[in-house]
């Protein structure tokens, strides 16, 4: 007998914890479709006031970078500090950058 979850899709869950903040990846879950995934996300990830907004995305729709690509993706940036915005002094009200 196949387990029920083997027939279900895997979804990634993103929660916005309060207005003004980005949605953050919090985990994944199984569901039949987007609608059901959203309901389960509500039950599994937001029951203790963790969020004001939810996104669910099919895991299979996420195109992820590969470990093998790390060299060409990230290393070339390390010696170019002028690309970083850390030299700018941010005004007080911008506290979530």
């Amino acid at each position: 007998m196949t387990k029920p979850t083997e027939k279900l899709e895997l979804f990634e869950v993103f929660v916005r914890s309060k207005r003004g903040l980005d949605h953050k990846h919090v985990g994944s879950l199984h569901a039949e479709d987007h609608e059901q995934a959203l309901e389960y996300a509500r039950d599994c990830y937001t029951r203790r006031s963790e969020g004001v907004s939810l996104w669910v995305v099919k895991s299979s729709d996420i195109c992820a970078s590969q470990e093998d690509d790390a060299d060409c993706f990230y290393d070339p940036n390390d010696d170019k500090p002028y690309r970083h915005a850390t030299y700018y002094v941010l005004p007080e009200p911008v506290n979530n950058m």
């Binding site: 387990k3 029920p4 979850t5 279900l8 879950l29 199984h30 569901a31 309901e39 389960y40 039950d43 599994c44 029951r47």
Partner: peptide, 12 residues
């Protein structure tokens, strides 16, 4: 429950 997610949801 038939699977973990539903188990949690119905328990709620």
């Amino acid at each position: 429950g038939p699977f973990l997610e539903e188990d949690i949801a119905y328990g709620n």
